[in-house]
Simulated assay, not measured.
Amino acid sequence: MAKPTTPAQRRVIAGADPVTGRLTGTEAQLTALVRLQLAFRHPRPPHAYFLTPAGHRAREEPEQAAPETAPVEPVPGVFAARTGTEDTEDAGGVADGPARQREVRAAWLGLVEMRRMTNVDADRDRPCAWERTHLVQAAAIALEAAGRTPAGQDRDGYRVTATPQPDAVAVREPTPEGVRACATALERAGWQVSEHSERTAGGTGRYVLVSPRRG
């Protein structure tokens, strides 16, 4: 579970620009949010601070506030992408329903904003550096944000797995229609997609190999 933010930090998050996620606050407040992984500092001048996907989620879903004197410590990412390979259906500690939908939407909008702010040409249609270093999670976020359902204990759905290729992941669904739907969703999200066949216990199946589009 993410560490609660202080009231002052909550005010900074709530005051972020609704479109860009740009933050205004003291250097100490902004640096603390970076340590909490709720904000990042843009690498180019004027080195402004912006909400991360976790920060967007924190703005949409108020969490329990901590006292002003609470210590600030780094915490793991507060959003858990569902890859369809988790042991439990309730992966990430959030049940299916409106809360999860809001969480996914906030994560996706945060990624789109990170693309705009960190891609050299401000291209929102091409994956950013974070996505390229977190391929499985990034692809899963794009799929769930597009309305695809991850596999679970009692349901079929997509599964995103790493591959021997360092810049590509594999996406599988039980049906050819599901595979094609995943491919379409990822293409729209800025990924390069190629469909392949493979031998399975039931015969021959299909899957897609996806990698972030570079140009």
Results as ranks from 00 to 15, higher is better:
residue 71 P to R: 10
residue 173 E to R: 06
residue 76 P to N: 13
residue 61 E to G: 02
residue 140 A to E: 11
residue 193 V to T: 14
residue 176 P to R: 06
residue 68 E to L: 07
residue 2 A to H: 07
residue 195 E to W: 00
residue 138 A to L: 07
residue 24 T to S: 14
residue 78 V to W: 08
residue 54 A to Y: 04
residue 16 A to E: 06
residue 53 P to M: 09
residue 213 R to I: 00
residue 109 L to H: 11
residue 102 R to Q: 14
residue 110 G to N: 05
residue 134 H to M: 02
residue 39 A to H: 08
residue 150 P to Y: 08
residue 172 R to H: 06
residue 167 D to G: 05
residue 173 E to K: 04
residue 162 A to S: 14
residue 41 R to T: 06
residue 95 A to D: 13
residue 6 T to P: 02
residue 143 L to G: 13
residue 121 D to Y: 09
residue 209 L to Q: 10
residue 112 V to G: 06
residue 42 H to L: 13
residue 45 P to R: 15
residue 209 L to F: 02
residue 34 V to R: 10
residue 200 T to W: 03
residue 148 R to W: 02
residue 13 I to N: 03
residue 167 D to W: 03
residue 117 M to P: 00
residue 118 T to F: 03
residue 48 A to E: 13
residue 32 A to Q: 10
residue 82 R to D: 07
residue 44 R to L: 15
residue 161 T to Y: 07
residue 11 R to W: 00
residue 94 V to F: 06
residue 38 L to T: 06
residue 132 R to A: 11
residue 132 R to H: 11
residue 126 R to F: 01
residue 164 P to T: 08
residue 130 W to Q: 05
residue 207 Y to R: 11
residue 91 A to Q: 10
residue 151 A to S: 12
residue 10 R to I: 00
residue 133 T to M: 08
residue 115 R to D: 10
residue 105 R to A: 15
residue 59 R to C: 02
residue 13 I to M: 02
residue 192 Q to D: 15
residue 176 P to L: 03
residue 14 A to P: 00
residue 49 Y to L: 04
residue 146 A to G: 08
residue 48 A to I: 00
residue 58 A to P: 09
residue 142 A to R: 10
residue 163 T to Y: 08
residue 96 D to P: 01
residue 70 A to G: 00
residue 164 P to D: 12
residue 121 D to Q: 11
residue 9 Q to D: 12
residue 165 Q to A: 14
residue 43 P to V: 08
residue 39 A to I: 09
residue 141 I to H: 08
residue 187 E to Q: 11
residue 180 R to H: 09
residue 163 T to I: 09
residue 131 E to N: 02
residue 118 T to L: 15
residue 149 T to Q: 14
residue 54 A to V: 03
residue 143 L to Y: 05
residue 188 R to K: 14
residue 208 V to P: 08
residue 34 V to Y: 05
residue 16 A to L: 07
residue 19 V to L: 12
residue 204 T to G: 00
residue 38 L to M: 12
residue 104 V to Q: 05
residue 208 V to M: 03
residue 7 P to G: 03
residue 122 A to E: 14
residue 134 H to R: 14
residue 90 D to W: 09
residue 116 R to E: 11
residue 19 V to M: 01
residue 181 A to F: 01
residue 12 V to A: 04
residue 9 Q to L: 14
residue 123 D to C: 09
residue 40 F to S: 07
residue 119 N to A: 06
residue 13 I to E: 02
residue 50 F to H: 09
residue 174 P to F: 02
residue 138 A to Q: 11
residue 29 Q to R: 08
residue 120 V to R: 15
residue 40 F to V: 08
residue 116 R to N: 02
residue 130 W to D: 07
residue 115 R to C: 12
residue 101 Q to K: 10
residue 15 G to W: 04
residue 84 G to T: 07
residue 101 Q to V: 13
residue 194 S to R: 14
residue 94 V to A: 05
residue 164 P to Y: 09
residue 58 A to N: 07
residue 169 V to I: 05
residue 34 V to D: 01
residue 101 Q to C: 00
residue 121 D to W: 05
residue 99 A to D: 11
residue 9 Q to W: 09
residue 38 L to R: 12
residue 175 T to Q: 06
residue 65 A to T: 10
residue 203 G to E: 08
residue 6 T to M: 04
residue 44 R to D: 15
residue 27 E to A: 15
residue 126 R to Q: 07
residue 114 M to A: 15
residue 86 E to I: 00
residue 36 L to W: 09
residue 26 T to H: 01
residue 159 R to M: 10
residue 64 Q to R: 15
residue 201 A to N: 10
residue 124 R to A: 15
residue 105 R to W: 01
residue 46 P to Q: 06
residue 1 M to S: 13
